[in-house]
Design a binder for these strands. Sequence first.
DNA 1: CTGCTGACTGGTA
DNA 2: GTACCAGCCAGCA
Length: 112
Amino acid sequence: MKKPAAPFSARVLSVVRRIPPGRVATYGDVAAFAGKPRASRAVGNIMRECRRQDVPCHRVIAAGGRLGGYGGREALKRALLITEGVTVVGMRVRSLARFRWTPARKIAKGAN
DNA sequence: CTGCTGACTGGTA
DNA sequence: GTACCAGCCAGCA
């Protein structure tokens, strides 16, 4: 039983809002956490409209560690991630697996 | 309902 | 490395 009480967009916003600083999630991941692992495109569209502080859309990046887009301000997105502690080189995140976030935050520790 | 768009993804050349 | 194609999904006219 399952029923998406809230529309997909609301789910995506909820997921993104839970992303802590210093961590990032890909559009595909956010889509998967929202219930549609293939709705990465839809997630992007939703993020485009977001624009609110409640939702750290700058922590949502594309697959492969690529920053993706940011309303034409990818440079700002890159700067924000770096400021939060994410290692970014060029327009790409280094060691994405190390900064990748999961709702369960089972990412452990260790060297970090 | 149909059709187009787009902050995506993966594959092929 | 870049460029192009096809598949996928939500929102809107």
